[in-house]
Write a protein that binds this DNA or RNA. Structure first.
Length: 505
RNA sequence: GCGCCUCUAGCUCAAUGGCAGAGCAACGGACUCUUAAUCCGCAGGUUCCGGGUUCAAGUCCCGGGGGGCGCACCA
């Protein structure tokens, strides 16, 4: 049984050593003593010498051991790849020019009992990479960089919002009524009150209640849960930024979004011009603005609008491959047509705005057109990055919209919203004109890290449980557990881009 | 849910239906300046599982499982 110490005093990180003694000449000895710690990633024992690459979170530095200088040299040269080591000694540069810590004393901090991946090719097996993410992170520097970039992205996002005067808040994750989006929830049971509760599908309604309470600029960065499918762009739990700003409308929010996203690109990547999946992508503000109607018309050549007769819209939607449902109105048909024909073709950032009111139950009606809502989605690289609008502030109209949702639910729409009387009551206390936004942080991190799959930007993405050998599937009932929307028929989820709302149509 | 692809040593990968192999890692050894060190030696397998066809199956067929991609779904 190996015993390892309870602590180790580092004087420097590997990166600091490399940086600080960068001027040391080959063969030169600095006379300075350091203590470093990390994992042995490569080992090159050579007779009475030994070289090892020690990596920590800051970088890597070579350990240089010599028989007669290094304590317990024989044990040192038996170190295996993956072992954690703390070492102290003089900073030197070897004759061959590699900056090194000439190890005088060292201690094993942890033993790697499982073999490490291929030292040159790393670990590529997708299942290993994500079921054992710790292995992936050590073996594949790109995986570390991606998660680190995400951390910086979220950090800078917070800092920028704080600097703009937004107050960061936390709202409940357990909701008595799942609201604020159009999605199936995960359900669970709260014993003390003998009631069903739901993991939130959006924080929207609570955040707007905080605006009613006087928080004029609020935001929350947090996890949302949607009981729908998985795909390269969907994980059942994902992270969003949601924010609300009193006295603002959706045009103000557009400016906020383009400034925030392009600013974050500068902060984190140093440029607003990036490459995503081999294609150049320019996030420089200002972004193009175009109405949903004109984009669909431009893409399809059809003369469409929310006023196009339903029969025509239905035909065009069917022609585009949409499986039309009878209950859909013109707004829903137009939205389907847009998503089928146009959204995926939009590459550089564009604010797609003025959605049908029919599909936007929490958005305020358009000031110039009662059939539209003041809603937009920022679309980048063919995907929604978020969802935003001038918030619906009128309690009577909100109640009416909720009731339309209930009608849709009764008609079979399992994702339609329920009436949230607490929320309507809050609106009766007065919600000032407010602009709101939901922004998918995973999707943004995908863009910034050039990731094709959402799991790359999530530390531990959802995976199907591993089955014991020979367990097979036959008898068990692991499948539909129940609670609310089990079975989730398809994957897909919705867009994590933001809050998803829709009407009931 | 449907279609296509895939699963071989710890890792990364080979093997026309004909003796299951290599590199790295591991293990033993050599080496006082290595850089994916090099060299010598040794060991390593339920070829995802279960059936079938065949003189012979990692390879072909059927069923199941894991994984990937696409579609569908996901307003």
């Amino acid at each position: 049984m190996t015993t390892v110490p309870y602590r180790f005093d580092q004087t420097s990180s590997a990166g600091e050593v490399v940086e600080r003694w960068s001027g040391l000449a080959a063969g030169e000895e600095s006379g300075d003593q350091v203590s470093v710690a990390g994992r042995v990633m490569l080992a090159r024992p050579q007779g009475k010498l030994g070289f090892a690459e020690l990596r920590d979170s800051s970088g890597a530095v070579q350990l240089f051991a010599l028989d007669g200088v290094t304590r317990d040299f024989d044990a040192f040269r038996r170190l295996r790849l993956g072992d954690w080591v703390g070492a102290s000694g003089e900073v030197v540069r070897t004759r061959r020019g590699e900056l090194s810590v000439k190890v005088a004393d060292w201690v094993l901090l942890a033993e790697a009992r499982r073999p490490f991946g291929d030292k040159w090719r790393g670990v590529t097996d997708v299942e290993t990479r994500f079921r054992q993410r710790e292995v992936d992170l050590w073996a594949n520097p790109e995986s570390r960089r991606t998660l680190l970039m995400r951390s910086q992205l979220v950090r800078r996002m917070r800092e920028r919002l704080w600097d703009m005067g937004f107050v960061e808040v936390e709202t409940p994750i357990l909701h008595p009524i799942p609201g604020g989006a159009h999605a199936r929830p995960f359900a669970t049971r709260f014993r003390a009150l003998d009631m069903d509760v739901y993991l939130r599908i959006a924080p929207e309604l609570y955040l707007k209640r905080l605006v009613v309470g006087g928080f004029e600029k609020v935001f929350e960065i947090g996890r949302l849960f949607r009981n729908e499918g998985m795909s390269p762009r969907h994980n059942p739990e994902f992270t969003t930024l949601e924010l609300y700003q009193a006295y603002a409308d959706y045009h103000d929010v557009m400016v906020l979004v383009e400034d925030l996203v392009s600013g974050l690109a500068l902060d984190v990547l140093g440029s607003t011009s990036l490459t995503y999946q081999g294609r150049p992508l320019d996030l420089t503000a200002p972004w193009r603005r175009a109405t949903l109607t004109e984009l669909v018309a431009g893409q399809t050549g059809l003369d469409v609008s929310v006023r196009t007769p339903r029969e025509e819209l239905e035909k065009w939607a069917r022609d585009a491959g949409v499986e039309v449902e009878r209950s859909w109105g013109p707004g829903k048909l137009l939205l389907e047509l847009y998503e089928k024909t146009t959204e995926g073709e939009l590459w550089d950032p564009v604010f797609v705005y003025d959605y049908p009111k029919e599909v936007s139950p929490l958005a305020r009606a358009h000031r110039d057109d009662p059939l539209l809502a003041e809603r937009f989605e920022p679309v980048v690289a063919g995907r929604e990055l978020g969802n935003a609008f001038s918030e619906l502030v009128d309690p009577d109209e909100q109640l009416a919209r909720f009731e339309e949702q209930v009608a849709a639910r009764d008609a079979g729409d399992e994702e339609a919203m329920a009436v949230d009387t607490d929320y309507v009551r809050a609106l009766e206390h007065g919600l000032p004109p407010t602009g709101g936004l939901g922004l998918g942080i995973d999707r943004l991190a995908m863009l910034f890290s050039d990731a094709a799959h959402i799991r790359e930007v999530i530390s531990f993405p959802m995976m199907r449980p591993e089955r014991a050998e020979g367990e097979g599937r036959g008898g068990g009932e692991v499948g539909d557990d129940g609670e609310v929307g089990d079975d989730g028929e398809g994957p897909g989820g919705d867009r994590e881009g933001g809050r998803r709302r829709g009407p009931g149509g």
